[in-house]
Design a protein around this nucleic acid. Structure first.
Length: 426
RNA sequence: GGAGACAUGGCCGAGAGGCUGAAGGCGACGGUUUGCUAAACCGUUAUACGGGGUAUACCUGUAUCGAGGGUUCGAAUCCCUCUGUCUCCGCCA
């Protein structure tokens, strides 16, 4: 959600910011609506003031035994006009909100301009791809191991689901446990186990709604299955006024994520790269405005540390304006090396949303030494996507015989196991 | 799922159609007193939006007593719906 006051003050800057996302100038329409809304509001408030005043006089007259009939008549006639003005004001307000809530966040100044992912910029790189001889893709490896089954998953649930079993299923669990321990023990995040279904206004708070309802699953009771733990974690502060000493607030959770991926039929159809359901460890920070930039770097490093400890080669990209998500001002993607695909693929996305989500959630804090409140900043990042991490391990640690070496850091989480070997199919 | 009770400011807690943005207390902040601490006393202590104004001072209006409707000249107070909390019963991991 954008700050209407800012748009009033500097409409040109507002339009210029959204032009970087290839959007047409919307300030003329917004300002027109805003002016009309305020005029209606002022008129309504004046009418209310008059009614309050007259009603007070009625009370006065009644107490002293006078005749209040004429005054009551006058207020009664005022009411028609008030009702009209109220409807008008509400209608204009709704129109304004509809526009404001459907516009994406403005990019940070340092976010590079660009049309699509080709304009993203690599900013650093870790590790060197091992140079496998004829590397296989994760689904070939997994099926050969007898521990990854797409056919049976389709029987249960249709396409874009996977069944893991045996050591591979255990490794999925181990990966999540390792990540949670790292973020809580080393980086100071508090572990949370949140609801996986949320109300409309919660999905609105993080900006999944109203624009992206098609990407979500909805229960018959009207709740939304979370597409990421960002949604419940960020909304932890929905409607709150926080004290400065509570900030920054850092939380993490491992949850399933549910995505209908309505728009991407035909993309990455093989394997478990793009699924309707996957596990992810999410990082969320709530900060004061002047902290969010540093927090963004810190969060990205937390995510990078996961890949470093797992010894998976990756590169860190800063997304361009055209590839960045709706709520973000600036986003870093981590892309893990996948030898089977001979390319880097996204495994984490860390975004600074500034006050964009905070406005939608009405999440504020009290600045020390100032009166009043100010919106907090929100940040979220994957730390990391567990399914894709499993894929990256399988492809990077594959042996010519089809077995998978287990990264050293993960072995304690797998009872000391060092290698995943072929088993009979489940 | 069945039955009932409740929802007021940072917290506790009055209020039962007008004089209530809301008594009283606690807490917090500022001040007076004080050798220090404590105590006592005085004062301040919500949010949002609008109008005026040298746009962060200040003045003024409106709204907000869980949310949304309704009744009324006038609603924290009466009515309806919803949401949430608590208690009892049933069911269940």
């Amino acid at each position: 959600m954008h700050d209407i006051k800012w748009i009033r003050e500097d409409a040109a800057a507002f339009d210029a910011a959204l032009a970087r996302r290839s959007l047409p100038a919307s300030s003329p329409q917004i300002l027109k609506l805003d002016g009309e809304r305020r005029a209606a509001q002022t008129a309504m408030q004046e009418a209310q003031a008059k009614r309050n005043d007259l009603s007070k006089q009625v009370g006065e007259l009644k107490r002293t035994g006078g005749d209040a009939g004429a005054l009551m008549q006058e207020v009664a006639s005022l009411k028609d006009r008030m009702a009209e003005l109220e409807v008008q004001e509400k209608e204009l307000g709704t129109q304004l909100d509809t526009i404001l809530s459907s516009l994406p966040n403005r990019p940070a100044p340092e976010t590079p301009d660009g049309k699509d992912e080709h304009a993203n910029k690599e900013i650093r790189r870790f590790g060197t791809p091992a140079g496998h001889n004829a590397p296989r893709q994760h689904y070939e490896l997994g099926e050969a191991l007898g521990q990854m089954d797409f056919t049976n998953a389709a029987k249960l649930s249709g396409s874009r689901f996977t069944i893991l079993s045996g050591a591979l299923a255990k490794m999925e669990r181990a990966i999540g446990n390792f990540m949670l321990d790292l973020h809580t023990d080393t980086f100071g995040y508090t572990e949370v186990s949140p609801p996986l279904m949320v109300r409309d206004e919660i999905a609105y708070g993080t900006a999944q709604l109203p624009k992206f309802a098609d990407d979500l699953f909805r229960t018959t009771t009207g709740l939304w299955l979370i597409p990421t733990a960002e949604v419940p974690l960020t909304n932890l502060v929905n409607g709150d006024i926080l004290e400065p000493e509570q900030l920054p607030m850092r939380v993490t959770a491992r949850t399933p994520c549910f995505r209908s991926e309505a728009g991407s039929a035909g993309k990455d159809t093989r394997g478990m790269l793009r699924q309707h359901q996957f596990y992810k460890v999410e990082l969320v920070s709530i900060t004061m405005p002047d902290q969010s930039k540093a927090e963004h770097e810190r969060m990205t490093e937390c995510a990078e540390t996961v890949l470093k400890r797992l010894e998976i080669p990756f590169r860190t990209m800063v997304l361009c304006t055209g590839d960045m998500g709706f709520a973000a001002q600036k986003t870093y993607d981590l892309e893990a090396w996948l030898p089977g695909q001979n390319t880097y693929r996204e495994i984490s996305s860390c975004s600074n949303c500034g006050d964009f989500q905070a406005r939608r959630m009405n999440a504020r804090y009290r600045p020390a030494g100032e009166k009043g409140t100010a919106f907090v900043h929100t940040l979220n990042g994957s730390g990391l996507a567990i399914g894709r991490c499993l894929i990256a391990i399988m492809e990077n640690f594959q042996n010519p015989d089809g077995s998978i070496a287990i990264p050293a850091i993960l072995r304690p989480y797998m009872g000391g196991m060092e290698k995943i070997e072929v088993t009979a199919k489940l």
